[in-house]
Amino acid sequence: MQKILMIEDDPLVGRLYKRVFELEGFTIEWAENGQDGLDKVKTMGPDIILLDVMMKGLNGLEVLTRLKDEPKTAGIPVLVLTNVSDARITQLATEKGAVAAMVKSETEPEGVVGMIKGILAKAGK
């Protein structure tokens, strides 16, 4: 079964995506802040990471930089999900190695599922 690590500090959004991905048959682990995410990525070895941007403590872009700087995690595809619709954030995220960045309020959960399936298929997983 494909494993997703979701790094998301908002419980409303976290519960929504956790439910959707479980209904879709994925294994999903939820890290509630950036540091928690960096810890969990080592123990769980996810196939893909869903990453929020605006978070207390380590923000998403900092987490992304650390993931990409670490050879063991650099190869895991990261999908950035944010509600800050600022072209600069999207650009920064892709420059830092995210596969794509999506605005949560503009996307149905189905759209996020579709995106994740597409990325995993491309990565041959």
Binding site: V13, L16, R19, V20, L23, N83, S105, E110
Partner: peptide, 14 residues
């Protein structure tokens, strides 16, 4: 503003 709206929209659609 968008975060709770995302949850409303998303849950309704789920």
């Amino acid at each position: 503003l968008r975060t709770p709206l995302t949850a409303i929209r998303g849950n309704a659609s789920v």
